[in-house]
Write a protein that binds this DNA or RNA. Structure first.
Length: 486
DNA sequence: TTTTGAGTTGTTCGA
DNA sequence: GTCGAACAACTCAAA
């Protein structure tokens, strides 16, 4: 009797290059059954949002094409992944299942459940690293604890030596001769239809591994030099825009790491540029480290005294923020960029997040949820850790009294207002001197630009100066709670 | 055990 | 306009 296939269970590792689970499956010699299972039920409250589902559709399509070309078509299923994989193993007589490790609490639960389920029938589950530079349980402080501060974490990672070199994509993958039945991609219903709001996403992005590798190459050629300063400029294309590709595992961080170091030799980039870029990869690593060791990170404040913070419920303010109608141009530009393209520049994310939490006093979890539903790069670890960082409740968070001034930040990082003009077209004709604070523009300038405050563009929904004082006052409750618990 | 240095990304005020 | 200090005090990580 011929040996059964190795089932390759694709998850957030939609790539052929540097996919150790796939590499090992091919090395094992027998046939491979490549499977993707859409399992909304497993994710609980963190079911994938609309923008991410759009990306997932196209990323699976690209993966399917690449696998087909290598001789091993992708089987698509929908439902409980543990049950689906176990059923496929039974049906095909598979000897083992390979997958890449995932670190979300629900995904770890899935791995435990599948391991137990398969063990009953003597099938092994082999999990492979690849989503991170180093496994999250690996790096520890000298006293054996997980890190809570970024800089020592990153120094420890660097001191540990280079991450493993990527493994190549297999050129041929032996498929089964008689494959079980699967679903058509379209039947997963991942794309928006009524209405189809995905036009802006399609104009902005090319999901899939091949496009991801091309984007990485283009960034390393054109964007690495000057990255240290340009990455803060939403009006330039200063960031790598690799985050959604990483989110779906179209690229591994090891590919990026080794690619960046190789490109650096003989490029115009300086050490600061390379360090700044790799540190951003480091923040993703740190977020996963935190989520792994503190699984309640997406829901509860990391610093428990923040439970005492007097948050506000304000549906109108939340809606104005979500729709980019706060009257603060840099915030509105960011929120509209998010809505249109499924992505927001990192600097603007900080400004918009700070505004929600500190000017509107709306709980960070509501911002986290909105980003989850609208970002193509929605990542449980990074999203949760970053919102908590902005809110001041997180590990290694900004001091609470650091409250971004949206007007000052806009003028500093979008000096000519080009970013605002692009995403807030009703302000496009305002001179740069007034575009960051239309309410302070002279009547004549507003008239010339066709801006009628309160009509064509909203008046500021709060007074930032007063909001700042209010936020600092609200923070007193946190300090009181902290003092109480000492 | 105790001590010490340090900690992503800012703002405001006053000289 | 530019510069330095104040804003809080705490906790982490390592020696």
């Amino acid at each position: 009797m011929p040996e059964g296939p190795t089932i390759l269970w694709f998850r957030n590792d939609l790539r052929l290059t540097d996919n150790r689970a796939l590499y090992a499956a091919v090395e094992a010699g027998g046939a491979v059954l490549a499977v993707y299972v859409l399992d909304d039920g497993a994710m609980g409250p963190w079911r994938m949002g609309g923008a991410s589902r759009w990306w997932l559709h196209h990323s699976i399509a690209a993966l399917g094409t690449a696998l087909e070309k290598a001789g091993c078509p992708l089987l698509i299923r929908c439902g409980d992944a543990v049950e689906e994989i176990a059923a496929l193993a039974a049906e095909t007589g598979a000897r083992r299942v390979h997958c890449s490790r995932c670190y979300e609490p629900w995904a770890q639960q899935q791995e435990r459940a599948l391991h137990a389920r398969l063990a009953d029938s003597g099938v092994g589950l082999k999990r492979f690293p690849g989503a991170l530079l180093k496994e999250p349980e690996y790096l520890r402080t000298k006293s054996g604890e997980p890190f809570k501060v970024y800089t020592p974490f990153w120094r420890a990672l660097l001191a540990d030596g280079a991450p493993n070199a990527p493994v190549p994509a297999p050129s041929r993958i032996r498929s089964m001769s008689h494959r079980p039945s699967g679903l058509r991609l379209a039947s997963l219903d991942l794309l928006p239809s009524k209405p189809d709001w995905s036009g802006g996403l399609a104009q902005t992005w090319r999901p899939g591994e091949a496009a991801a590798l091309a984007r990485l190459d283009a960034f390393l050629m054109e964007g690495l030099a000057g990255y240290a300063s340009n990455r803060d400029r939403p009006d330039l294309s200063g960031t790598s825009r690799l985050s959604p590709h990483m989110d779906f595992g179209e690229l591994s961080p090891a590919i990026i790491w080794h690619g960046a170091r190789a490109a650096f030799a003989g490029s115009r980039a300086n050490e600061d540029d390379l360090d700044a870029f790799l540190r951003e990869i480091g923040w993703r690593e740190f977020s996963y480290h935190l989520l792994f060791h503190w699984p309640t990170l997406p829901a509860d404040p990391f610093r428990p005294e923040f439970a005492a913070f007097p948050w506000t419920e304000n549906v109108a303010h939340l809606a104005a923020w979500q729709r980019g109608l706060t009257g603060f141009p840099i915030v509105d530009a960011g929120m509209r960029e998010l809505w249109q393209t499924g992505w927001m520049h990192n600097r603007v994310r900080m400004i918009a997040a700070s505004f929600l939490v500190k000017d509107l006093l709306i709980p960070w979890q509501q911002g986290e949820r909105w980003f989850w539903d609208t970002l193509v790069d929605a990542d449980l670890a990074s999203n949760a850790a970053s919102w908590q960082w902005v809110a001041g409740s997180g590990a290694d968070a900004a001091p609470y009294f650091r409250i971004f001034n949206p007007t000052t930040q806009g003028a500093k990082f979008d000096p000519d207002g080009a970013y605002i003009r692009r995403f807030v077209p009703e302000l496009a004709s305002l001179p740069a001197a007034f575009i960051h604070e239309p309410a302070a523009a002279p009547d004549g300038a507003l008239r010339m630009a066709g801006v009628v405050l309160g009509k064509t563009y909203p008046l500021p929904i709060v007074d930032h100066g007063k909001a700042r004082v209010g936020a600092l006052a609200a923070y007193e409750a946190v300090k009181a709670r902290a003092a109480e618990s000492r």
